[in-house]
Amino acid sequence: MFPRTEAAPTAEGDGRSLIWDWPTRLIHWLFVLLIAAAYATEKTRHIDWHRWCGYALLALLVFRLYWGVFGFSPSRFSSFVRGPRATLAYLRCLPDRTAAATPGHNPLGALSVIVLLALMLIEVGLGLFTVDVDGIESGPLSDWVSFDVGRACAEAHHFLFYVLLALIVLHLAAIAFYAVYKRENLIGPMLHGKKPVDIAYPPLKFALPRLIGGVVLSVAVTVLVMRAFKI
């Protein structure tokens, strides 16, 4: 089940070690697909499919938060979230044309991860309360709010998408900057998980039970939300 996570990084034999385990990578690329799908289904007014995109994103976000606490160590928030001092120090050496010393997220990248995850959570959260202009289509929790509040959520949901899009553009620009200026490939590790770094992360213990626990948790939360907490 966990070939990459369980493999001892030194056993790769090519001086590369695993930094992004497959659940982290899978979630990342599903975010990409689902955000695109959510946009496309809204624009073509397939609102049922749009809702499903939102539910899938919610489940993935719950799983990613869980994995940020109980998952493989480079994916844990405690391993990459840094204070303002470390972030400033990193900013100062940003013009250096050398690869970052941090194997996982650098302090600035960590900030980007936090902001992107928070924005996605708020965006999905707003969608739950959204009501369309005709009062016909709505999110699963829209009966908790008035028509006017539901409409305000819809406006915010609409606006915030473009904020999210702007941050995604920044994310891509940063990847291009690292590739061109710092000669560091960030896309490869997000595909195969490995990076040529010295540090070897200990394999995740009880990986399968942890994974199952996360899947059960995220599905349960999503189903509860879909049913407006009425079982």
Partner: peptide
Amino acid sequence: HFHDMGSDFKAAGDQLKSA
């Protein structure tokens, strides 16, 4: 008028969504 109609439509829809 359309705002009020949307609001009324939502009021009915909210009920019909529930069990």
